[in-house]
Structures are given as structure tokens and as C-alpha cells.
Amino acid sequence: MPQQPEVPLDGLYGDLVMDHYRHPHNRALISEADIEAEEFNPFCGDRAALQIKLDGQGKVCNVSARSEGCSIIQAATSMLSDMLPGKSLCELTAIAERFRASMYNGTGDDTEGLGDLLALQVVRRYPVRIKCALLPLVALEEGIKAYHSKAG
């Protein structure tokens, strides 16, 4: 089986991940959200929920992000929530695609809009945990999809 580097846990559980895990951002619920989405990982019962409020220009003006589960899910949810404000849904979709691609293929030079999410690159060394990092992203994508289909 593939060998992993000796005790690289300080990488996986580095300062930025642990900061977001211990002190997650944007947890306050918002009322009258335009986009609401909740995703579960059925294999572990973990959960990530996002609420997004859009302003008159269709840009994100308020975000609520809550998650239950391991440090990676909680950190990823918090990190993702930081990247949303001020963006249009088109921009969010682009960030989502970039983030997903980066978790499977690495970042290359295209890191625009990923911010702290870049710290999750270390999760690529633990393939079974990639789905933890991506759970809030799935919530975001599903939320945007549902918003578009509702808006017709």
C-alpha cells in the first residue's frame, strides 16, 4: 500500500485548519436567506449547512455557515464561507469549480478566490478525507442549482 510521509499531521492539523475548527466564522443564522442548502455525508452522519443572502445586484451580502463533524469539515465550511461575500453567483460557481479541481488535481497557478481554502491542499495526502473537505462545497453547488431552478 502507498506509504504516507511520517507523521505529517502538523500539516493536516496546521494552525489555519485548527483556527477555523476551533473558531469557525459566520455561524450566525440569517433570516430570509435566498439560498439555503444542507448536505450530509451518509457514511459518517456529518453535516454542512449554508445560507446565503443576495443584495440588489445579485451579490452575496450575508452568509451563514454551520457544520457538524470532523475538523476538516468544520474548517472547510468556515473557510468557504469567508470566500463568498461580495461575489456574484457566477463568480461563486467559478470558485467552486476551482476548489473542487484543486482538491483532486492540485492548484496549479489558478488559485484566485480560494483564500484560506488553499490550506486544505494538505488533505490531498489523505484521499479518504477529501470528501470531508468538499461537503460544504457540495452544499454551495446544490444551493445555487436549487436557486436557479426556483428562479426559472
Binding site: I72, R129, C132
Partner: peptide, 8 residues
Amino acid sequence: AHPHDIGT
């Protein structure tokens, strides 16, 4: 610590 983190 969440069980997944313990497991890793």
C-alpha cells in the same frame, strides 16, 4: 476531537 480526526 471528532472520531474521524481520531481515526486519521
